Amino acid sequence: MSVPYETCGTHEAFESPDACLQRLLARTLNSFELPDETLSRLDTALAYDSCLHSAAHHSDGRRRETYRHVWLVADGSAVTLWELTHNTGPDGQLHHEVYTDQEELRIATARLPLPSAEPEALEGAPPLVVDDRTAQPLPGREYEWGDSPDHARRVLRRAENADRPGEEVAVLLAGAFAHQITQAFGRLDPLRGRRPGFSLYEHAFLLADGREVSLWEVEHTATPDGRHMCEVYETEDAAQSAMERRAASL
């Protein structure tokens, strides 16, 4: 199912987290209801990510989607906003709403004039297609073949953190024959000097015995002089914790 959606970066290759927030607030009808405390925390946003959470499309053209927007803020925590889009109004146009928690989102979604997803409620009505992305497995990897040991060495060599993966990991990845790079979170803020930014990348390696081993690379500018810095960790949790520590220390 194709669900059109304007994500951060559609128009600008390097939009800042604040620009993504401003576009969300501009298109949502009820953004004025957001708590001042939430908006104040978002003023310190360092990184941004978004994803489709769920969708329901009726064959008569009515539809609704929900999206999760997450910002990493300066105190090391994350702020989540939930966006509801639908075209169930009298004008048939696509409308956007924003909420601070899933319960508010659930209540707003329940009031939409869409049929229930339960089979017994669909008798005599066109079928409803429901797609909940949170229940779907991650898609298969698309590996790049060749030069994987060199790629692993380059990633490990540019890591500046003292607790970076050691020699044992380096030896293991010397036997990799394929790899894939995926951006997992955020983007660096291109407006250098204004605020630091964070990005998280997964470098996945395929070994000869069929195992997958990942390195998690944090790129950021949360340094005293604002310079670009790379840190590498063996787990996503460790990388996320490092991002939170860096953000909290600002």
Rank of each mutant, 00 (worst) to 15 (best):
E103T: 14
D91I: 06
A26I: 05
L34N: 00
T28W: 02
P137S: 08
H151P: 01
P139C: 06
G210R: 12
R154I: 04
H58M: 07
L114T: 00
A74W: 03
V129A: 15
R23K: 15
A117F: 12
V3A: 07
T85V: 11
E33P: 02
H151M: 14
W82R: 02
E65I: 04
H151G: 03
D237A: 12
A13P: 06
G140C: 05
H86C: 08
A222H: 00
E244H: 14
W71M: 05
Y233D: 01
H151R: 11
A162N: 04
A208S: 13
S40N: 10
L25H: 07
S116G: 15
H58R: 06
L52C: 07
D36P: 00
G175E: 07
E33R: 10
H151V: 15
V155P: 02
R106H: 10
L72D: 03
G197I: 00
D132T: 10
V79E: 00
A26R: 10
E12D: 12
T44K: 02
L188K: 06
T88R: 05
H228N: 08
R187P: 01
M1E: 14
E104A: 13
P127S: 09
M243P: 04
G92I: 13
R195D: 00
S2C: 07
D101Y: 06
L52M: 12
G9D: 10
F205M: 00
L52I: 12
L215N: 02
R62Q: 13
D49L: 00
T7S: 09
P165N: 04
D18W: 15
L200P: 02
R41C: 02
Q136F: 06
S16V: 01
H69N: 10
A174E: 15
C20D: 01
S31P: 02
A117E: 15
C230F: 15
E37G: 09
P90K: 06
A125C: 13
R62N: 09
H220C: 03
G146I: 09
T38K: 08
T38E: 03
L250Q: 11
G210V: 12
E120T: 11
L105W: 03
V98Y: 01
A74I: 13
Y99Q: 03
G92L: 08
L84F: 10
L72G: 00
E97V: 05
E168R: 09
D36N: 09
L94N: 06
L114P: 07
R157G: 05
V70C: 11
T235E: 02
P119D: 11
D147M: 10
L52Q: 05
D150F: 14
Y143S: 03
R27E: 12
G186F: 04
E234F: 04
P139D: 04
A13L: 15
L156G: 00
V232S: 02
Q136M: 13
H203V: 03
R164S: 11
P113D: 07
G89Q: 09
